[in-house]
Write a protein that binds this DNA or RNA. Structure first.
Lengths: 120, 120
DNA sequence: ACAATATATGAACAATTATTCATATATTCA
DNA sequence: TGAATATATGAATAATTGTTCATATATTGT
């Protein structure tokens, strides 16, 4: 059975209208890829911890490392990822680099995430 | 330099008050792990697409596979992941299994995520 | 009971990724 | 200029993970 260019299984009760809706409402492939990339960034404990710390205050690399009890290198690598995704920004003061959050949505996303895992 | 059990670097200007705040506000290790696990689930294009499809309508496995142009096996594997994270639920009707979304927060999380990648 | 069909699942493989280690770069201060 | 320090980064390694393939399970109709 084939409708609307979609090969359907025998029992399928999916309507043409539904297929149309899916194709209309589904964000573009590239957008979905970017969205996945964003969530991938949140999908790591170290990066989540860094963000949690930055919720409290701007902070330099070595203090983040100290607070999270991890090596400076590991933190630096992850900060690069956060920088590339435009989730953190930084300012340099001499040899010290201070990082802070660069996105208003992060808190909302985290809160909703926490809601999900907290319930039940 | 050591304050509050945190080994700080020489230039650190981090205050005891900040350290206290971080330790107070930071969710428990286990909670952060679960949060990362949740975002990891969102961090895959296939799973994101499945969720997008289910935003429109409940759907059986083979129709999801057809719509996304992927094998039934691949979809089934990913649905298991979504099931385990309690993001989708299912009902069985004969040999057909219908999946649907099982979380009110997903839409919010996605919308915030899309906001982030859309801006700038 | 048998054939057909929908879904689930285990094993294998390829690809991705987080951390570590070594080292490079940049800045300050003596 | 040289030593000390903060940060960044490349390479290597170990661990995780998504898809495929083969196959198992469950259900329906004949």
């Amino acid at each position: 059975m084939k409708e609307n260019g979609v090969e359907k299984c025998d029992v399928s009760v999916i309507h043409n209208e539904t297929i149309r809706q899916v194709k209309n409402k589904m964000p573009k492939e590239e957008k979905l890829y970017d969205l996945a990339e964003l969530f991938k960034v949140f999908g790591d404990t170290t990066r989540i911890k860094i963000i949690q710390v930055l919720f409290v205050s701007e902070m330099c690399v070595c203090d983040i490392a100290a607070l999270l009890n991890m090596t400076q290198s590991a933190i630096s690598h992850q900060l690069r990822v956060l920088k590339q995704t435009r989730l953190v920004k930084y300012r340099k003061e001499g040899k010290v680099v201070y990082y802070s959050l660069d996105d208003d949505h992060i808190k909302n996303i985290f809160d909703q995430g926490l809601l999900h895992i907290t319930e039940r």
